[in-house]
């Protein structure tokens, strides 16, 4: 089942001689293809203007930083497809890092501090899900509130101080395996698991159904609330893994490490074709979106552009992506 570019289905008028032409036209207009083209142009521009952009070191750096963002973006994408929203991912990652790092500093075995960190992410997702499905709080409000609560908690627990971690085995995400940064393996694993789950299992099919038309899902005898609860927990799982990756990569337990991450993730995922109205989105699109946003940030830093410009460009990109999603089928009037 193809999830994104759903409009590119086979029209009934296949006898039309221009059918193929039209299909190709539609294919070119698919959001992911446009995004891929934009990425190619961006890479070309940066390569021509920066001496050290198209080097294996820099490209691997981009991939390394994309990985953390991608893993959390997968969770964000799944939640969006199911008709939800989770703004607490950034602060969730921070809390996961604080839990993992502090457990490690307190002498808990490495594996356990990571596992408990990931479980913290799941727990945050579960609480979000309960707030949304049981207390009927709008996802935007519930997860925004969660963002503040986690933010404050992080500063309270760390007393506002960052703490360096010296143990190199904790900083596994800084290492490379066969010349490839370790986080990239996480990126690949997350992509494969999410792709398979989303496109070949009953759960994935139902996720699209619940997000696309929750009322119809209810009539088809699905337990929409329980399904969404599980969805937020799985989103939290990805937040947990990304949080562990982040703290390991930074080697630093820092209460401000989650700041503004939700905005970058949202930009990437919306660029990748997901929609706030639910039932839409793809892992491939999210991957493209994340690489695009990371490459843009990387390039702007190297171009010595004031960082504020990065924010402005991201805002414009976000508007373009959402406007593209909302475009009327018959064209603008």
């Amino acid at each position: 089942m193809t999830a994104v570019g759903a409009q590119a289905g086979r029209p009934a008028s296949r006898n039309n001689p221009y059918w193929l032409v039209r299909q190709v036209g539609r294919g070119l207009l698919a959001q992911n293809v446009l995004l891929a083209l934009a990425l190619v142009f961006l890479v070309l521009y940066l390569t021509l203007n920066l001496e050290f952009f198209f080097t294996s070191t820099n490209l691997l750096t981009i991939l390394r930083y994309s990985s953390v963002t991608f893993v959390v973006s997968v969770g964000f994408t799944l939640v969006l497809i199911g008709g939800g929203l989770d703004l607490s991912i950034g602060q969730g990652m921070m809390i996961v890092g604080v839990v993992s790092g502090n457990l490690h500093l307190a002498g808990v075995p490495l594996a356990w501090s990571f596992i408990l960190g990931v479980l913290t992410g799941v727990a945050i997702g579960l609480v979000n899900g309960l707030l949304i499905t049981k207390l009927r709080i709008n996802p935007l409000i519930a997860t925004l509130a969660m963002l503040f609560v986690l933010w404050g908690t992080g500063f309270l627990v760390t007393k506002g101080r960052s703490q360096r971690i010296r143990d190199d085995s904790f900083k596994f995400a800084r290492q490379s395996l066969w010349g490839i940064p370790v986080p990239v393996f996480f990126l690949v694993a997350a992509a494969v698991v999410a792709l398979v789950a989303l496109n070949t299992t009953k759960a994935g099919r139902h996720l699209f159904a619940v997000g696309g038309n929750p009322e119809a899902a209810r009539q088809a005898a699905m337990n929409v609330d329980r399904f969404r609860l599980g969805m937020y927990a799985i989103g939290g799982l990805f937040t947990g893994v990304a949080g562990v990756m982040l703290v390991s990569q930074q080697g630093l337990v820092a209460p401000n490490s989650g700041m503004n991450r939700e905005f970058w993730v949202a930009t990437a995922v919306f660029l990748g074709g997901a929609s706030l109205s639910g039932g839409k989105g793809s892992i491939l699109g999210t991957l493209l979106g994340v690489v695009f946003v990371t490459t843009l940030a990387n390039g702007l830093v190297q171009l010595a552009v004031v960082p504020e410009w990065a924010l402005i460009i991201n805002g414009v990109a976000l508007i373009l992506a959402v406007a593209f999603d909302q475009r009327p089928k018959g064209g603008y009037r």
């Binding site: 999830a3 159904a209 038309n213």
Partner: peptide, 11 residues
């Protein structure tokens, strides 16, 4: 009709 516009006919 309670159909899922984003899913195909068989789905």
């Amino acid at each position: 009709l309670a159909l899922f516009d984003n899913l195909d006919v068989a789905a």
